[in-house]
Nucleic acid binder design. Structure first.
Lengths: 146, 146
DNA sequence: TCTTATTATTTGTATGTACAAACAATAAGA
DNA sequence: TCTTATTGTTTGTACATACAAATAATAAGA
């Protein structure tokens, strides 16, 4: 019954290889964002808020591909840290950066650059660009069929 | 200060695209494994145990790229379901499948095949193989430098 | 042999994320 | 206008996973 070497199979499994790569990247990215005091997703969220100056949670979720409940939770925390404020407008909740939030932008951008730098150094620029493009494309295709 | 469209940047960010793809694949894989009563990682773990008939937790962690604490937790649950048993041998803990665990093997393999089928149908066989190879390679390179 | 270091596992705790159900606000149809 | 449907958010709960500290077992060095 048991006849295939699991380890070999795993290396040819998209779910598995992506999961592994994901965990490695989380680690790298966490490290590079640490000095900002935010973990990466919070950082991205704040960057998106900073960029738009006022944005609904729905839209944030769409940009970052996060579910509404996740966005709610993240925004709560950013509010707790005094980085954003929110105002209710009808049923939508609009998020805007505080001064403190805006001041973090520079750091966030450089954290992001550092992450990018770190993996391009290891993978090579072209290879990195190529793989990102392929992964993006695969993501789009799979999303659309789900 | 704020001058780059976050959304565009995200599409060119390895961390982000991999995270997104990962979430999509988790969803697909969860669906296909549902009928086995196990979620994918538990399934992989059990397959590895079934294959070796007796294996240490350390080795399981290495095969699946999971931390020791995670392996402990997962094995606990598989024991609770009566799919594996463990015996202590010195400081290492050896895991072996039960009859019930072995009987699940067929289902697990077909769940796995279905996952594979599902994404190759969408991405195309060649493209899927190519992207898996690239991701695997990137994972290896990054892991080694971390 | 006694002490110290290394190794494998476990436990406590925390985090990111999702889903399902509840809620609240608006829009659409009768 | 009243009822019903839709939409955006929130809350409760659950899960996969990690890290750090604790524990237990063995190995190495004095």
């Amino acid at each position: 019954m048991v006849n295939k070497p699991t380890k070999q199979l795993l290396e040819r499994c998209l779910f598995f290889t992506v999961g592994k790569l994901n965990r490695i990247l989380i680690k790298i990215t966490d490290e590079e964002f640490r000095f900002t005091g935010l973990s990466p997703t919070y950082g991205f969220l704040l960057m998106a808020v900073n960029e738009k100056r006022e944005i609904s949670q729905k839209e944030l979720g769409e940009i970052l591909h996060l579910t509404p409940s996740t966005v709610t939770r993240f925004i709560e925390k950013l509010k707790g840290k005094g980085l954003v404020i929110s105002k209710q407008e009808g049923r939508t909740s609009l998020i805007a950066p505080t001064e403190k939030g805006l001041q973090l932008q520079k750091d966030l951008e450089s954290a992001w650059d550092n992450v990018h730098q770190r993996y391009t150094d290891i993978l090579g620029k072209q290879e990195a660009d190529q793989i990102i493009a392929l992964i993006h494309e695969a993501g789009e295709k799979l999303e659309e069929q789900t």
